[in-house]
Amino acid sequence: MILYNALFSKKTIIIGIVLLVAFLLLPYFLTRFYIYLLALIFAICLLATSLNMVLGFGGMYQFHHAVFYGFGAYAFALFVTKSGLPIWIGYVIAPFCSALLGLVLGLITVRLTQLYFGMLQLSLGSLVWAITYRWYSFTGGDDGIHGIPIPDLIGSSTGAYYFNLIVTAACLLLMYIIVNSPFGRTFQGIRDNPERCEAVGINVQRQQLVGQIIAAFFAGIAGTLFVTIEGSVFPDLMFWTFSMETLIMCLLGGWFFFMGPALGAVIIITVRTFVGIYTEYWTLILGLVLMLLIFFLPEGVLSLFFKKDVPSEKKEG
């Protein structure tokens, strides 16, 4: 633990503990709906943060991150419903399935950079989606899979809440450590200047491939958390528009901040839930907000509070 002293200031530790205690106590004061909503938010926070590991900290144009999330969810659902083995094993296997998909897609995509990379990933991800969408006999097609059994311990909404809270907190901690490791430092170097990284002896493509696998792994965990709350999976989990929404969360919170995407996820899910009560035109509002954001706050909400002397964004050739 002494090793990690450098990573956490006293302030961070105190805020972290206070937040954790608050979240641990919250279920005693909330109705079932809010407990459910928070549990969902945890899963999406984890998803958005895993996306940002490669997006904000690696500069990779991860246009279709949701495919790893959906793949994890499906891997879990299929394992649980088809294998007959203990459900807990599914929680271990699913993230590795996502990581494997990250490896396979990554091998094809990391040869390219920037927009090419992103669009190729969008295409390959859509292929995964298309197969899932059509393979009725195995994946349930566009109906998805429902009534997925969850272990009793975490089957209740409060149980799922605590499970998601603890898993998300542990994963965020782990990702924070990774982002601040030599790997993460190198990744940030690649984000800023891949050409220079090559020149200092870094195998950029391999680094990006590993980053892709790690991000896919955490996205897979987020997918299993989703199933824990919902008990079902459906192809929309890996539809490209959901990937875009996740990108928006990163943008909204601030993708140069570790906690930015999580904040973005909280804002988007909360606002969507409550605006959704009053109007069916939620996406119109989201679209307009996003436009304003791109024009006036391109570094996200957190950049309002933590001003860094960061050079303005530059377009790369």
Partner: peptide, 22 residues
């Protein structure tokens, strides 16, 4: 701006159009 921003901006545009059509 970065391609990423342009992509997200056009996505925002598509969200607005989608609901306008509705």
């Amino acid at each position: 701006r970065e391609h990423m921003m342009l992509l997200l901006f056009t996505f925002a545009f598509s969200l607005v159009i989608g609901d306008m059509v509705k």
